[in-house]
Design a protein around this nucleic acid. Structure first.
Lengths: 218, 218
DNA sequence: CACCCTTGCTTACGTCGTAAGCTTACACTG
DNA sequence: CAGTGTAAGCTTACGACGTAAGCAAGGGTG
């Protein structure tokens, strides 16, 4: 442990906070813990950060900044699909992030850049302002919603079939016949049972394309 | 005068917790506050409730139970649309609920009933198990995601156009040209700027119908 | 040298969830 | 009736939490 500390800074605090959240989730991200990690008392952090809210806003924007924007892609659908997949992958790397991302107003620079890029792609593909706005909102509602639900799904993707059986007691008694049957289908391998984000992503993108074309030629 | 309290019960505790969350959000829902509301010490609650997690699980399921299931509806699309709209409306009545609903495993009876019903509708409409499973997951990811984002959107729907101007400072400097232009479009009334859940709902439902038909006749 | 300004530290307050043990009140026995 | 068991609620306490208020120490500037 190198005891010679370099001075704190907002950046250093946020990066440590991000690392802390990654290693132990939002629960382990307390100002005291964060200070300890930086070799400093909790109150010292307040010289570089307004309060804990600011820390949360900061690390969320750090995560959003990890979402690479696709390069110049002439195919808007491919670009949008890639955008959604990348966001999903990044958010999955930081499992604590989606809940924060969705439940607070985020106006950090990375988020603004991200939205602006998206609007640009859609406008370039001929979407009206109205449709482009609805389009990205629909996409993001789905992508974030899917990711957050996925992260909290009690069964890991790998051993879905195995673990599903453990939940069968809930379905005993015939109160939930369809769920019971669905579980059986998964357990017997007739249905992977492992939802993939691309299913809804392509569904939405195809629908958006259709709406754009209909809008263009009424 | 010692107020003659009726005895506590799990139901009474959960109902009080629900009321508390509705009136002041999740922040004001502490075991101490909840006890005070019931005229009881915090620790007394633990006779009827395992811990705070159980309280949270309980009130989430109470909310889900408020989501009326559409009656026998021969039109699966109408039923599903109604289902989504109702869920959105109920969750909007309890603004603290979506975050909890999405970020914890919910296996309460109301939730199971709700999912089972949905699977029944889709199966009745000719969806395969696989497609039915993907379908409701896509729907719910969108509905919950949309609702949660919406609730945290800083601008109320009513005065979107007015308030949008207040955020213009963020967009100054030309760093986010598309967002700036979009804001202008809204401010000038060319685009309502107020996303409605039915946009994405219908988009997804139309897409699902298409997939079902394609699956039936390969 | 005196000055102040930045940085980090100390102490303290009111909050939280909940473990452990205690008291009270009532329903049964015999 | 006394005696006992049990459930419901109470008391106290512990170790967290975010952060307000004020202090100390070092370095750069005049």
């Amino acid at each position: 442990m190198p005891k010679s500390r370099e001075p704190l800074s907002t950046r250093r605090v946020l990066q440590a906070a991000l690392a802390l959240a990654d290693s132990g989730g939002t629960d382990s991200l307390s100002m005291r813990h964060l200070g300890r990690e930086l070799g400093v008392e909790a109150m010292s952090l307040y010289r570089h950060v307004a309060n804990k809210e600011a820390v949360l806003d900061g690390i969320v924007d750090l995560v959003v900044d990890e979402i690479d924007l696709p390069g110049d892609d002439s195919d808007w659908k491919a670009a949008m699909r890639r955008r959604g997949e990348t966001a999903h992958r990044v958010l999955t790397r930081h499992p604590w992030a989606p809940a924060l991302l969705m439940s607070r107003t985020n106006t950090g620079p990375a988020m603004l850049r991200y939205i602006d890029f998206t609007l640009g792609v859609l406008r370039g593909a001929g979407f009206s302002w109205r449709l482009a706005d609805y389009a990205w909102n629909t996409m993001d509602s789905y992508v974030y919603g899917f990711t957050l639900r996925r992260l909290n799904f009690p069964i890991a993707a790998a051993d879905y079939a195995d673990t599903a059986a453990a939940y069968e007691y809930l379905l005993a008694g015939g109160r939930y016949p369809h769920m019971a049957e669905l579980t059986r289908q998964v357990a017997e391998g007739h249905h992977p049972g492992d939802p993939d984000i691309t299913f809804g992503l392509d569904l939405i993108l195809d629908g958006l394309e259709h709406l754009r074309d209909r809008e263009a030629a009424p």
